[in-house]
């Protein structure tokens, strides 16, 4: 194929990011993205709590008091919310809001998008055992324990 016949692909990646575009992301970026996601989930849960409280107030204004579910219930709801958010984000676009902000993307070892079941299982393990990220700086391929189990990678993707 001559040069003239070759299709001209225009890269959308900024010049500064081209050297490491597609390379496995390190622990700092991933933890930063996780913190952003955590804050976002907390905000969403608080907004949900406020909505529930408002509905309760509207239905029984006189006997209203702020709902105070037991720790196990609120913990379960928070975990479920985080899991739902992570799995939907990974399965739909390959990146959460935190990933987008930090320029990261979750991919399979083959380089494709993570499918729903794998995304759900990965999200569950991240919510239950977030310390799996500790393996990232130790791994030669910057993989967390979850990445090794579910055969995924997190790469820099600034597109």
């Amino acid at each position: 194929m001559t040069r003239a016949e070759k299709p001209h692909l225009v890269s959308l990646v900024p010049a500064v990011a081209r050297p490491f575009q597609g390379a496995p992301a390190g622990i700092a970026s991933r933890v930063a993205a996780a913190i952003v996601d955590m804050i976002l989930v907390v905000v969403i849960l608080l907004a949900g709590y406020a909505c529930v409280a408002a509905l309760m107030f509207l239905s029984h204004p006189r006997s209203f008091s702020f709902p105070s579910p037991p720790a196990s219930v609120s913990g379960s709801i928070a975990s479920f919310g985080a899991m739902l958010y992570l799995s939907v984000s990974w399965a739909a676009t390959g990146r959460t809001f935190g990933d987008r902000l930090l320029g990261l993307r979750v991919i399979t070892r083959a380089g494709g998008r993570v499918h729903t079941i794998r995304a759900v299982l990965r999200a569950m393990t991240y919510v239950l055992v977030p310390v799996g990220l500790i393996w990232v700086p130790i791994s030669r391929h910057n993989r967390s324990i979850q990445d090794i189990v579910f055969r995924t990678s997190v790469v820099y993707d600034w597109e």
């Binding site: 500064v16 490491f20 390190g26 622990i27 700092a28 970026s29 902000l101 930090l102």
Partner: peptide
């Protein structure tokens, strides 16, 4: 600003990887 944050994160990744 986002680009700056990303660059700093990448630099931190490299630094941590070097130390490890």
């Amino acid at each position: 600003t986002v680009q700056g944050v990303r660059i700093q994160a990448v630099e931190a990744d490299k630094a941590i990887a070097r130390v490890v």
